[in-house]
Amino acid sequence: MLNSFKGLGITLRTFLGKPVTAEYPKQHLPIQESFMGFPVLTWDPKVGEPYCVGCMVCIRMCPTQCMSATMKDNPLQKEGKSTRRKIVESFEINLGRCIVCGICEEVCAFDAITMSHFHELATVARNGRRVDLDRLLDLGKEYQHDSGWRPPTEIEKEKLAALKATQSAAAVAAPSSAGPATEPQTGGGA
């Protein structure tokens, strides 16, 4: 009978200890920084337009085919304000179908789509899970504001520049021993 009482002792000790659970609707567990919520479209505040050019790469790579988009000529480019020749006209994601796999973020070459921290999907409207361009951009702006999002290619460029700087400094210090520069790896495999 001894072991049963030992087990009871453990239960009792845990009962008196600090609870490890959170009461969900009232209390949220902290979200990890790299958490992948639903995809949202990002906003380029410098120009005042979305990053997305509607190139459809993400749409073709999406395993569940839950997105659709169209592109148009960029009016801001004619005015000389933007360097993007094309821009997204409409964009729709059916979040009820999205499996939050992160492939769209990975394949987009324009930093235009990112996995936000938005994850609570309950809606009252029947079609509430089909989100259009405006809503996606709103969610994107919110996420950009909350998390201090910066375009990954920019970060990558900075890293590359920093690496080059240290390498050239090393080459100046020891010109004979400097080997061939190693290319930094990016995830996903080019």
């Binding site: 990890q32 790299s34 958490f35 992160g102 990975e106």
Partner: peptide
Amino acid sequence: FEATSGARMMHNYFRIGGIKEEPP
């Protein structure tokens, strides 16, 4: 797992030939 791959269960983290991104 959530901190590493971004998802608690459906990670989609391994890639053919390696892994998706640097862990924290």
